[in-house]
Write a protein that binds this DNA or RNA. Structure first.
Lengths: 130, 130
DNA sequence: TATAGACCCTCTAGTCACTAGAGGGTCAAG
DNA sequence: CTTGACCCTCTAGTGACTAGAGGGTCTATA
C-alpha cells in the first residue's frame, strides 16, 4: 500500500504520515524498487490508532505512551486510565472556560449599534479604564 | 515605566511585551541612558487592550485589525462587529466539538476496570477494527 | 570602593503538530 | 515519448509565545 492510499483510507495527509514516521510513531515501512514507501496492515492499524487518539484530543506525547502501553499487554491498565481521565478533566476545563468567554463575547456583540467607531461599544469594552 | 513594571501591572511576561513591540503591536518606546525601554501611559493602555482582546480569544491578526479600527474613529463599526461575531461563532463551534468529545471520553473512562493492558477497554476502543 | 543581586538588553532557537514549498524522481496510460 | 498523477527528501513556515545564552545597568549594602 502506497502512502497516498494509506492517507485516503485513514483521512490523514501524506505529509502527516511522513511526519509520524520521522517522529517514530509508526515504524519505517519497506520500500519499493522506486523508493516508494510500502505500508502493510500493521501500519494501517497503528496509524488509525494514532488518528483516533488525536481526534480525542490526546497530545502526541500521550499517544506515544498509549502506544507503548498497547504494545505491553502484561502491565496494569492504570496509567492508561490516568491519561484518559486527565484528558477528560482538561476537556471539562476548556468547556468551562469557553462558556464564560461566550457570555462576555455575546454581551459585546449585542451592544453593537452599527454606528461609527467613535461610538463603538465593542471597542469601548476592550479599552482599559473605560 | 520600565518593562518589568509594565509586565506586572498588565499581567504580561516581559518577553511577550518585547515580542509585541517586535511585531509592531505596540510602538517602540523611548530608551533611558542605559538603553532600558521607557514606557508611558499610552503603551499601558494599548497593551491592556491587546491583553483583554487576547483573553477574549481574538488572534493577533484580529487584534491588529481592532487596533487599526480603534485608531480610526470616523469609520463604520461594522467590521468590528463582524470580527466579534466571527469570534463568537468560533467559540460556539469549539464548545460543541468539546461536548461531543466529552461524551466519547467519559464513555472510555467509565469502562476502565483496572485490569491488565490486555483487557483494557480504553485501548480496545482506540484500536481499529475492534 | 567593591560586589551582590535584581533588573535589563539582543539574538537565536525551541515549543506543538503539523503544513507548504522547492526541486527533483517514478510509473502507467495514451 | 510525453503527460500527469504520484512519490521522494529537505528546509522552512505557522501562531503566539517561551527559554536560554551571553552580556550590560543600576542600586544598596559591606
Amino acid at each position: 500500500m502506497r502512502i497516498g492510499e494509506l492517507a485516503r483510507t485513514t483521512g490523514t495527509k501524506v505529509e502527516t504520515i511522513r511526519f509520524y514516521e520521522a517522529e517514530g510513531l509508526i515504524p519505517a515501512p519497506a520500500r519499493t524498487r522506486g523508493n516508494y514507501r510500502d505500508f502493510d496492515g500493521r501500519h494501517l492499524d497503528r496509524l488509525s490508532f494514532i488518528r483516533r487518539s488525536r481526534d480525542l484530543g490526546f497530545t502526541l506525547d500521550q499517544v506515544r505512551v498509549l502506544l507503548r502501553m498497547a504494545d505491553n499487554a502484561q502491565r496494569s491498565c492504570e496509567e492508561v486510565d490516568a491519561i484518559a481521565r486527565e484528558q477528560l478533566d482538561q476537556v471539562d476545563r476548556k468547556i468551562a472556560d469557553l462558556r464564560s468567554l461566550r457570555v462576555e463575547l455575546s454581551g459585546l456583540v449585542n451592544q453593537c449599534q452599527q454606528g461609527t467607531i467613535a461610538e463603538c461599544r465593542i471597542l469601548e469594552a476592550l479599552r482599559p479604564r473605560q
